[in-house]
C-alpha cells in the first residue's frame, strides 16, 4: 500500500483531490492540511487550532467529514479528498453557500469553509435535520463571530430549499 517504507524521508504519494489524481512529494507525517494548503495551493481549507478542536480544516475524506490537521498525509493515500474548492460546482453545495450569504452566516469567514463542509456532510446524511441535529452536527466547528444562530438558520433554510426543489 505504501510506496514509502522508509517513512522518515520525503516520498511520492498519490492523492485523489477534488476528482483529480495528484502525486505529491511529502513526508508521510506531513499533515494533510499542510499538503493541501502548501503543496497544492488549496488555501480554502484553514487552520484554526491544529489539534482537531475547531473544525476550520474540515475536508471530506471518502465522503466523511474529517479534520485535515489530524491526518498524516500517508493515511490519505488512495482516499477521495474533497475540499471547498472542489465543491463549488455541486449545486446542493451552492444552495448552502447562498443561504450562508443571505442569512449572515459568514462574518470574518475563517471558519466558513469548514462550517460549510460540516453542514454539507450533515445534509448529505440527514437532508431534513431538526434544529437540535444541526446544532449537534456543527458542534465540532467553532465560530467566534456569529454565535452560530445565523449559521443554524442558514443550514435549516438550505435544507428546506433542498427539499422544496
Amino acid at each position: 500500500m505504501s510506496d514509502c517504507p522508509q517513512g522518515r524521508s520525503k516520498c511520492e504519494m498519490a492523492l485523489r483531490v477534488n476528482g483529480e489524481r495528484i502525486v505529491v512529494r511529502a513526508y508521510p507525517m506531513d499533515r494533510l492540511l499542510d499538503v493541501l494548503r502548501g503543496e497544492l495551493g488549496l488555501t480554502g481549507t484553514k487552520e484554526g487550532c491544529g489539534e482537531g478542536e475547531c473544525g476550520a480544516c474540515s475536508v471530506l475524506l471518502d465522503g466523511t467529514l474529517v479534520n485535515s490537521c489530524l491526518i498524516p498525509v500517508l493515511q490519505a493515500q488512495d482516499a477521495e479528498i474533497r475540499t471547498i474548492e472542489g465543491l463549488r460546482s455541486d449545486s446542493r453545495f451552492q444552495e448552502l453557500q447562498e443561504a450562508f450569504l443571505e442569512l449572515g452566516a459568514a462574518q470574518c469567514g475563517i471558519c466558513t469553509p469548514g462550517m460549510l463542509l460540516a453542514a454539507f456532510h450533515l445534509l448529505t446524511k440527514k437532508p431534513q435535520p431538526t434544529i437540535e441535529e444541526i446544532r449537534e452536527g456543527l458542534a465540532g466547528n467553532l465560530c467566534r463571530c456569529t454565535g452560530y444562530q445565523q449559521i443554524v438558520e442558514a443550514v435549516a433554510e438550505a435544507a428546506w430549499r433542498g427539499t422544496a426543489v
Binding site: 505504501s2 524521508s9 511529502a26 508521510p28 507525517m29 500517508l74
Partner: peptide
C-alpha cells in the same frame, strides 16, 4: 519536524 518521524502503513 515531520521529517523527524517515521510513519509506515503496511496495509
Amino acid at each position: 519536524h515531520p521529517g523527524d518521524y517515521e510513519l509506515v502503513a503496511p496495509g
